[in-house]
Amino acid sequence: MSERISRADVVHVARLARLRLDDDEIDLFTGQLGDILAHAADIEALDVGDIPPTSHPLPLVNVMRADVVTPSVDRDEVLAQAPAPEDGRFRVPPVLGEEP
């Protein structure tokens, strides 16, 4: 058991990510995630006051493309790869609950 992340936190995050973990896995990942957070804490101990925050590993901004329409893909080809196409659309199991 890590002091940086609880078992309950791991269960919660796993549920949000729709991951089914058994008890051994929960213990394993609680330990591993704790180690990762401990490493982050090491960095937190450094004085980084003079270093600008990194929002992206590449020193780039405003990478954009012109607003030009390019061909889409062939619908039949895409739908042929879906498990249950119907009426030109993707058939999915009944959706439980509301849209987010």
Binding site: V69, T70, S72, R75, V78, D87
Partner: peptide, 20 residues
């Protein structure tokens, strides 16, 4: 004219799944 991150047409009323 096009979508936010790709060149598919931003068009209302097209046949389903033709702008993908």
């Amino acid at each position: 004219a096009s979508k936010l991150f790709c060149g598919c047409a931003n068009q209302f009323g097209s046949e389903p799944n033709t702008n993908i």
